[in-house]
Design a binder for these strands. Structure first.
Lengths: 209, 209
DNA sequence: CTCGAATTGGACTATTTAGTCCAGTCTTAT
DNA sequence: ATAAGACTGGACTAAATAGTCCAATTCGAG
């Protein structure tokens, strides 16, 4: 308990083995869920052995923790790319379109790789904390973008960019969840459009009067 | 496969047994997840025997299907009560407050009883279809409320009440997911406030000019 | 009451699963 | 080169789990 792995890594070979296991587990748990992915399946997919797995992880919970971390890194890296140059509302709309396209190409299956982990892991303290951290970093990317969108305009009083990002991320997550359920990108489109309108209205100059 | 249960129910006693099993399974799967709830645990909680379970359900998938149905009924009954008399934006805000309070009293744990089932079951056709149906009925309640809010006002062109309901439900689901992750009701509040503003703006008379 | 059908109890099986263990191989630093 | 220790292969165990089976009990209609 409390350790990230049973043993620290001493060699590059060991690090590669560990990464191979985590990557395979991340892929499998993404499509099958955490509880439905057995360690044997992970070992088969990563061509590793039992002793390798238990050399690097204390138990399945330890592996799951690493998987959460890995999935967060994947999602955040993708989002960082999409959001890095965000500087206008049109850029935000292009971000929306990219997410919708991404969802469409996977037939809306799977939902958000990070969001899907929540219902299975949110009652376990350590995974929950890492998921929360992942979402917080995601929000930070949005906040940075919103700041650039607002630019040098007069800040509208009472508008908190962090809260704007939280609402936007909620719309995204809920949109993906409904898209996954209905197998249609429409809920995602509607939710993100609502969020973008909300951002646009909030970043405008104070209403006259 | 394809059957709701292994056997039709012939007596009231049998119906009661079946209901007892489904209720216990629904409770357990709500807090532990579907995959992490064993049939033995369901039987212990419902004080039923193996043969009773397999008399009424073909297999675990059959039971899960009944659980999805049951959970949808529970959630929709609660929402129907909350949304039945919805006729104004202030009523909508009270609905928001009720959901936030509900989330707070459970310490934001568990998320939405229906939404939490999505990530575990959305890749199985029958459960997914029932979840989609549940969300559709939920949206219908919202649409009915929005129609009353709009009342006899001039309909703003291009506003689809169904789309408004979808976006609102997405905000709710995403808000609950983030609330569950961060153990704070704040994301839920922000997401629902955004949705309500969006509804208010959409149901207003067409902007002048 | 009585028979056939519905219902029930619970032992039993086959499989899967997480986790253990140890002997053996590779790496690295000296 | 060589020893210490990192790393690996895979057999093994104990527990949990889904699902089977049949004898026993209860119910409802006549």
């Amino acid at each position: 308990m409390g350790e990230f792995s049973a043993e620290p890594i001493r060699t590059a070979r060991g690090a590669a083995t560990r990464a191979r296991i985590v990557d395979a587990a991340t892929d499998l748990m993404r499509v099958q869920g955490v509880a439905n992915t057995s360690l044997d399946a992970v070992l088969a997919a990563s061509k590793a052995s039992k002793s390798q797995l238990y050399h690097y992880f204390a138990d399945k919970d330890g592996l799951v923790l690493a998987v959460v971390q890995r999935q967060a890194e994947r999602v955040l890296a993708a989002q960082e790319t999409l959001l890095r140059d965000l500087a206008s509302l049109d850029d935000l709309r292009r971000w929306r379109d990219a997410l919708v396209d991404l969802s469409r190409t996977t037939d809306c299956a799977g939902g958000c790789p990070l969001g899907s982990l929540v219902s299975e892991l949110a009652e376990s303290p350590q995974p929950r904390a890492r998921l929360a951290d992942g979402f917080a970093r995601w929000e930070a990317y949005l906040v940075a973008g919103f700041r650039k969108i607002r630019g040098s305009a007069v800040p509208r009083p009472g508008v908190d960019l962090t809260e704007l990002a939280t609402a936007t991320l909620a719309a995204l997550q809920g949109g993906l969840l409904l898209a996954q359920t209905t197998r249609s990108t429409r809920p995602l489109e509607l939710a993100l459009d609502m969020a973008i309108e909300h951002v646009a209205a909030s970043l405008q100059a104070p209403a006259p009067g």
